[in-house]
Design a protein around this nucleic acid. Structure first.
Length: 107
DNA sequence: ACGTTGACCTTCG
DNA sequence: TCGAAGGCCAACG
C-alpha cells in the first residue's frame, strides 16, 4: 500500500491533538488548526471530524466553536449527545454555550 | 472536470 | 453586541 499521503498525515496529527485534550476541557476548531500548523483551516478540522469512523474512541465531543456553542443545530440528536458527554465530564453550560473562560484548554 | 457543501474563523461596520 | 462578508479547502456528485 502507498506510504502516507500528505492529507492522511494531517488527519493523523489532528487526531493526536484531539486525543490530547484533557477530560473536562474543550478546544475550538480554529485552535486545533493552529496547533496542527495550519492556521485558517478550521473548516477542514470540522470536515475531518465529520468523517471519523463510527466507533471511534476519539473525544470529538471536546471540540466546539470559538463562540463556545456546539457545532450542531441546537437540540438535534447529535447536539444532545455531545452536550451529555461533556456534562458527564463536569462541563457546565450557560444556556446554549460553554463558558470558554473556564473550560478552554491551554496547550 | 467543475460547482457545491460543510461539526468554521476573523474582521469590519 | 450582532450580522454580513470574505477566506479556507478536501470530499462529493
Amino acid at each position: 500500500m502507498p506510504l502516507t499521503d500528505p492529507s492522511q498525515l494531517l488527519k493523523e496529527s489532528l487526531w493526536q491533538l484531539v486525543a490530547a485534550i484533557p477530560p473536562g476541557q474543550v478546544a475550538s476548531y480554529g485552535q486545533l488548526a493552529r496547533l496542527a500548523g495550519y492556521p485558517g483551516h478550521a473548516r477542514y478540522v470540522g470536515t475531518t471530524l465529520n468523517r471519523l469512523p463510527k466507533g471511534t474512541t476519539l473525544p470529538w465531543f471536546r471540540v466546539l466553536r470559538s463562540s463556545g456553542e456546539l457545532a450542531f443545530p441546537p437540540h438535534s440528536a447529535a447536539w444532545k449527545r455531545q452536550k451529555t458527554l461533556l456534562e458527564a465530564e463536569g462541563v457546565k453550560f450557560k444556556g446554549l454555550k460553554v463558558p470558554l473562560k473556564q473550560y478552554q484548554w491551554q496547550a
